[in-house]
Design a protein around this nucleic acid. Structure first.
Length: 432
DNA sequence: TCTGGGGTCCTAGGACCC
DNA sequence: TCTGGGGTCCTAGGACCC
């Protein structure tokens, strides 16, 4: 039995819990660079805010409706997420942290000693008390059905009060008949459209579809989804995160970039960041690739996007090697005269610590004390704050930095940003 | 003027091997 | 003139997720 717990409008809620003055007002959170709307609270949804839509296209609507906008404050969201997950891990034997705002809990066995819906309500109440965040809980025999149950909890908040136990088969079929096939977890826009053309419109029709037919026209992924909808578990809770296959660091620039020197700085910065993530995973990489692109939306000049990769003979985790390789990649794809919008550095082909073999034919001799140097670098940056020690190639001014014009304080992770309560006389009541 | 970032898995097709 | 069968590995691209 699985429970899917996820926080309602997570980013927007993180912003409002520290701002009681925003109660009842529409609130949205923007993506990096203040580009798109990535989260909105119920009030904002009611105003007709388009999720995923570009910010600048909706500015007029926001002004009229009094929408309060925030830049993404990942430091705050990550810390709030930790608090939620720690509580969940305390309350349930096995938890898989599926994303920043949701987790699957394996609650097999719980139904032997208590009512599942009650258990869901207890999770909800505990999280509300500890974090002031409201969650939805969906309970069922498979992950896909738990997702569906959670969706129902979101869709009918008053009727369900945020918790749905969907373990009863009759209830499953009733709900699936009422939902469109694109509301299934794992069915996106494309597959939904193809299914519809085949006459499969509701989730129930998908659950009842012939498994060989699905396998023939789609992939094993959709086959698993269908089986899961029928109550046959194909996916388990993965308590320990599997090791990553690749690491990507990419950003859009605050302003279009035309100078090679600026691009080189950006690439150095992304390479250094990717190398840091790599070491955090205790991995060494052999593939380093870089991509650059202009905006796909610009009509007055031709699009340019390109990518290059180098394969090292010996796996590395040293920022100096990764910066050097990334710069070589950049040099092969850089073209003068474009207005670049975005770039990124990707690492792949990982080896775990210890298996890295020295290569007899490698031109570069192994670096002396590379591990110790990198450890020291990471330690200092962890203790004194990100970016305390950095590489000269990253540049100092960084004119290409992303825009974050509406950033809120990092209430929970910086002393200087701590919330300050100011009491006025009236708050204390008038003296008798 | 202004359109996110970071992942996973699967499949098809080409290169190459014997 | 007639040009096989079976396999692996790699990569690019497409789909999905949050």
């Amino acid at each position: 039995m699985f429970a899917l717990v996820d926080v309602n409008s997570f980013y927007a809620s993180c912003e409002t819990i520290f701002r009681p003055d925003l109660k009842g007002r529409p609130v949205i959170v923007l993506s990096n660079n203040d580009g798109c709307v990535v989260a909105c609270n119920t009030e904002a949804k009611e105003c007709g805010v388009k999720m995923g839509g570009p910010y600048f296209k909706q500015k007029e609507l926001f002004r009229r409706a009094g929408v309060v906008a925030f830049s993404s404050n990942y430091e705050l969201y990550a810390d709030m997420s930790d608090r939620v997950m720690r509580t969940l891990e305390e309350m349930s034997p096995y938890c898989e942290i599926y994303s920043i705002d949701e987790a699957f809990c394996d609650i097999s066995g719980v139904q032997n000693c208590r009512n599942l819906e009650e258990f869901g309500r207890e999770i909800r109440a505990t999280l509300l008390q500890r974090t002031h965040l409201t969650v939805g809980v969906g309970i069922a025999q498979t992950k896909t059905l738990a997702k569906l149950a959670n969706l129902a909890a979101k869709k009918w908040p008053h009727k369900t009060r945020g918790v749905v136990d969907l373990s009863d088969i009759e209830n499953q079929r009733k709900l699936m008949a009422a939902l469109h096939v694109n509301e299934t977890w794992g069915v996106g826009r494309r597959i939904a459209k193809r299914l519809e053309e085949m006459g499969i419109k509701t989730v129930l029709q998908l659950a009842d579809a012939d498994i060989r037919f699905i396998r023939k026209h789609f992939s094993v992924v959709l086959e698993r989804t269908v089986r899961e909808l029928r109550g046959e578990p194909c996916l388990g809770v993965e308590e320990f995160a599997p090791t990553k296959q690749e690491i990507l660091c990419s950003r859009s620039f605050g302003e279009r970039l035309t100078e090679y020197e600026h691009m080189r700085q950006a690439i150095c910065t992304y390479a250094a960041r990717a190398a840091e993530k790599l070491r955090k995973e205790h991995q060494y990489c052999r593939h380093i690739s870089v991509f650059v692109k202009t905006s796909p939306f610009t009509v007055y000049e031709p699009y340019y996007g390109n990518q290059a990769m180098v394969k090292l003979l010996t796996p590395t985790q040293d920022t100096r090697d990764i910066i050097a390789a990334a710069t070589r990649c950049l040099n092969t794809i850089w073209r003068n005269g474009h207005h670049y919008q975005k770039a990124g550095v990707m690492l792949g082909d990982f080896f775990s610590q210890g298996v890295a073999q020295l290569n007899l034919f490698d031109e570069n001799p192994p670096r002396i004390n590379s591990e110790a140097l990198m450890q020291t670098l990471d330690k200092i940056n962890k203790k004194k704050g990100k970016g305390t020690l950095y590489f000269a190639g990253q540049g100092i001014q960084q004119p290409w930095q992303m825009k974050r014009a509406m950033l809120s304080p990092r209430y929970t992770t910086r002393w200087s940003d701590l919330l300050v309560m100011k009491a006025s006389n009236s708050d204390w009541g008038s003296p008798a």
